[in-house]
Write a protein that binds this DNA or RNA. Structure first.
Lengths: 242, 242
DNA sequence: TATAAAGTATCCCGTAACGTGAGAGTCAAT
DNA sequence: ATTGACTCTCACGTTACGGGATACTTTATA
């Protein structure tokens, strides 16, 4: 899809798409030899994410940080966004209530306190904002990026080592002893780079197959490794829960 | 109320209030001798109006035009804003639907078309936007302001003349012949400055008593004139309806 | 097949609505 | 008398594009 098609589909301007490209927020996967931007389906999904975050008032810079972060999880984001949009709706409903009261008030039918006249305006008290800040605030995202960057050469070696040893047994059952031992090592190793609960760990595994950027990388060590790890990680998480 | 109190009450920053003062959008009625801004209750009502318009995406410049316009009617604005907020809520609900579908889609539970992935984003199709543009668009407001400015000295004289002659009979009944003849002249005269239906004319009369800026001006020609004109205009409108 | 019309690209200046200090005066309470 | 919370006025910085200029590509039409 070319710029104008995308622009009309989602209701934004061509200039906006240019802008997002300029700042590296959304660079089209492909460009024709004439230099025309061509947006892929994946680009559209990213755009959707961007627009959700934008609707919630996130600045573009932070949106970029978030979706570029190695710890970014689309589904997690969608769920958080869902919660925040519901909250925004509640806020809007309050505002509508406020305006209705104000109309009555202007007719002299009811009394209104000063606070009442401004109910719904205060955007800063969204209960999920705090949660979002914790998850996506500067600190959290920076740390995640930092940890990813701080991966030394030896870490990289270790990564590859684990991948290779898991790849070697990827045709066994995900819940066999060897697999679970490998995953155990994996779990403790990646904890260096992020604080994963068992549930998060399981989610991470899911991402290996859901997000093809991961799938591709992992399957370089052996076709089907991503799926195998995903399954084994799920088993591991469930087994160690209680 | 001083800046910080107002800021905290409505959930905006002190700088924002300073800004609104700078651009002449909201100038506090009073200032202490030290130069501290002191906001009156009326200022707060204006601020509420401003914030409603802002929530609906109006630029501050236009907001200023609208609320400064001689044809501005607070209640009319509230009603229009109410409609537009409801529309915004519907849009938000669509977005929430979209996000819910997207979550299902990402789990592979359902299919989604491209259009569906962006439902709710397009802000430009609010049915009341058109209505608002007609009412408050550049043309309408400009014309109103233009007409008000284009009032020549002789027009001003005529204004005063009618006011005076109506003031002279303001103790008669609003539906007596003299009053209705005066109002008839009034109706045809002000039509030069705006296109008033009979209903609008009646509404205008109501404004004379509702909005104290008008009341004050009119009552300069005689205490109670505003109320008298309001009553007589209502009678005139009803009589000439069918 | 020429030629117009529509779409796209980059460059670059403009704007809107504040944010963010800096430096200084003011006010209420200890 | 002093401290701390508030206030003022500059004045420059930032964000997220808007909008024009100019040039190249692609599509539609004669």
């Amino acid at each position: 899809m070319k710029v104008k098609e995308v622009a009309e589909l989602v209701g934004i301007s061509v200039r906006t798409l240019h802008h997002y490209d300029e700042i590296g927020l959304l660079t089209p996967d492909e460009t024709t030899e004439a230099g025309y931007r061509v947006y892929s389906d994946e680009n559209l999904e990213t755009l959707q994410q961007i627009l959700f975050f934008k609707e919630l008032g996130f600045p573009l810079k932070k949106i970029k940080e978030i979706i570029d972060s190695p710890s970014f999880d689309r589904e997690e984001a969608l769920i958080m966004q869902h919660k925040m949009l519901l909250e925004k709706k509640r806020r809007l409903e309050k505002m509508i209530g406020t305006i209705e009261k104000t109309i009555q008030h202007s007719k002299g039918e009811i009394q209104m306190s000063k606070q009442e006249k401004f109910e719904g305006f205060d955007f800063s008290h969204n209960p999920y904002e705090q949660e979002a800040r914790e998850r996506w605030g500067d600190k959290a995202v920076d740390e995640a990026n930092e940890k990813a960057k701080n991966m030394t050469a030896s870490d990289q070696e270790k990564f590859n080592g684990i991948y290779r040893s898991l790849a070697a047994i990827r045709h066994l059952s995900p819940d066999c002893k060897e697999a679970q031992e490998g995953i155990n090592e994996w779990y403790h190793f990646i904890s260096k780079f992020g604080n994963y609960s068992l549930d998060a760990f399981k989610g991470l595994g899911q991402m290996y197959v859901d997000d093809e950027r991961f799938t591709k990388n992992i399957d370089k060590f052996g076709e089907g490794l991503a799926q195998f790890m995903c399954d084994a990680m799920a088993v591991y998480a469930d087994k160690n829960k209680k």
